[in-house]
Design a protein around this nucleic acid. Structure first.
Lengths: 347, 347
DNA sequence: ACACAGTGTGGGAGCGCTCCCACAGTAGTC
DNA sequence: GACTACTGTGGGAGCGCTCCCACACTGTGT
């Protein structure tokens, strides 16, 4: 109610300059923490800034400097899976945390339909954002390549294949799965089955590989009848479990590639009269709410999702500022973060 | 790779004008779908636009027009955990849907600590957004008032009290709770207990009122020993359930004000050897993932969260454009959307 | 005394748009 | 034939910044 209540509108750089008795350029330098301003002038400017309650105008700055101080987080809307889990919120939280230290806005974009995807391309070519975070990209998604063509720095979450070319952040699905299986072996389980996600999803594939490698490392042969492919849904998990029970009634442990599938498996096991963990140990993947609230609480592999978000944002910021310096976007490295097994009563 | 590959940078309004053989103003008029342009000129301009692949520059537009075509969605980070569930994503989806038809950006802001909250005030006074959506506002939150002072259109989700003065969208907590209790009565339950959230949260209060009103309407006296106050956590729900069982061992139904508390209650009931729904029927609130995956699946009151988000966004857009016309922000109405009971096996 | 580099500083010239005033053209009216 | 009354249209004047060149001023070395 004091200094900022001037006649209409917020104070401008110019006004701060007048107030401080200096030139516009000098104020700009102080605001941007830039070089070569005497301590004295700096103090005077800062005083004027606080007195007037000056806040730089974003639009003007963006226009003049040809940058936006904003990055976009693109979410594929139809992916119900990503909305269901805390995944989404955690990513956002991580990204937000990384951005909190900067002055950069987070613009959320739901790119669902083709129409929206077209709009998105417009957004991006309209210089609305300095960089893009792509979450849950599918193998055939044209967006990453489109962005590359437009020269917009991009970071994606999760590799689309073993030879991912784009800068990306992923969790170590293979190691996580292997740890889960090792845990089951350590608990003395002999016949460990697995329920996988669709194998054209790279992450699901890795988890299956982890299962295989852990068994191999323990000198156990992998019995293909102990592998059932499902689709990350509860019903799919249930069906897969039924298959497994038919094919190998003597199994005493199941590693499911997602908590939701584990929930389905659990239901089927119950129906078949198998007790968890007494008769059959169960381990999931994701450590979602479902895992914590399951009965019994589900042992699960926890992905550091928030940290992945944070890392993605940091990588992007680096590329955004780096681009100003050098020309091209060097084929960035894939950062792979470790997973952690959270042991609960189901195993 | 064709029209837009001009020498450095995207095409400008000016260039489109030259190409179309018209003035800048005319192009602007066409772009903004505004009045009084002859069909012929319009066509020429549109041709030039597509040929050049012209996309208006946001920053320039914002600067010149003194608006931003962006609204902020403010999320209180610390409580994100409570609402971590589909709530957050669903709100975003609803808001996104409402915005998809416009050309307005959604800027996500996590306002957690006081420091961030201060930054937020800066954001907003820096004219970064045209309006603000506030989600999950607490009674003592200074933000709404701050925004009002700054003259920034705001819509909040959930009333903070019966006499909410700000424009807001809420679900009918009272009716939802009442419906849940009525359902239990219809199922022939006689002794219905309730586990509430903290009663200084208005929504929790309403749900308790709904419980009371439903019983009263059925001519049943409300026994205060059947009411246990908890805190929306699983552990709280569990403790509350224990209390209730001690105080009223003969209860045959429980209405919990959240699914998470219901999950806690369920665990305690199991531990006490009560079967659900045979001995005790259980109903939750929120219809979250937890409810769907619980064993048995939990009957729960579903809030139209996505629609709430959509409605909030629409209300805000209305106020944003309305503000240009008239001066003040008329004390908007509170929109209250109906809840729906989703019946599953727990009752 | 001179030139010379180095440090602060002021302010012009835009960035790409919207707003709005001025003006041409056409048409209707006295 | 001169008046007003439109409808389209062109383009100047900013919006509030950043960038960068030019200009003091200070020192140092000759």
């Amino acid at each position: 109610m004091n200094g900022n209540g001037r006649s209409g509108g917020r104070p401008t750089l110019e006004e701060v300059a007048v107030r401080a008795g200096v030139g516009r350029g000098t104020v700009s330098r102080v605001i941007n923490g830039s070089s070569k301003v005497s301590e004295q002038t700096k103090a005077a400017v800062e005083a004027a800034v606080t007195e007037l309650g000056y806040v730089p105008n974003r639009a003007a700055r963006a226009l003049a400097a040809n940058r936006n101080d904003a990055i976009a987080l693109v979410i594929p809307e139809p992916e119900a899976r990503f909305f269901a889990e805390p995944y989404f919120s955690e990513v956002v939280r991580g990204v937000g945390a990384a951005l909190a230290e900067t002055d950069i806005q987070l613009v959320l974009t739901l790119a669902g339909s083709d129409r929206e995807r077209r709009r998105l391309a417009q957004y991006l070519s309209g210089h609305r954002v300095d960089g893009v975070l792509l979450v849950s990209v599918h193998a055939g998604d044209p967006l990453p390549e489109l962005l590359a063509e437009l020269g917009i720095p991009t970071v994606i979450s999760g590799r689309r294949s073993a030879g991912e070319t784009l800068p990306c952040v992923d969790s170590d699905n293979l190691a996580g799965a292997a740890e889960a299986v090792r845990h089951l072996l350590d608990r003395g389980r002999r016949t460990i089955a697995t329920i996988t996600g669709p194998l054209d999803v790279y992450g699901a594939h890795c988890r299956l590989d982890g299962y295989r490698q852990a068994l191999a490392a323990a000198g156990r042969p992998v019995d293909e009848r102990l592998v059932a492919v499902a689709d990350f849904t509860e019903e799919g998990g249930r069906r897969a479990m039924r298959e497994l029970l038919e094919r190998s009634p003597s199994l005493d442990a199941v590693f499911a590639s997602s908590d939701v599938m584990a929930a389905g498996a659990r239901r089927e096991l119950r129906a078949a009269g198998r007790r968890i963990p007494h008769d059959v140990a169960l381990v999931g993947f994701d450590d979602s709410v479902v895992a914590r609230h399951m009965d019994p609480p589900l042992t699960s592999v926890r992905q550091p999702i928030e940290e992945m978000g944070r890392t993605m944002a940091r990588m992007l910021l680096e590329r955004v500022s780096g681009r100003r310096g050098s020309a091209g976007a060097a084929g960035g490295p894939a950062v792979v973060l470790p997973n952690r097994l959270v042991v609960r009563e189901s195993s």
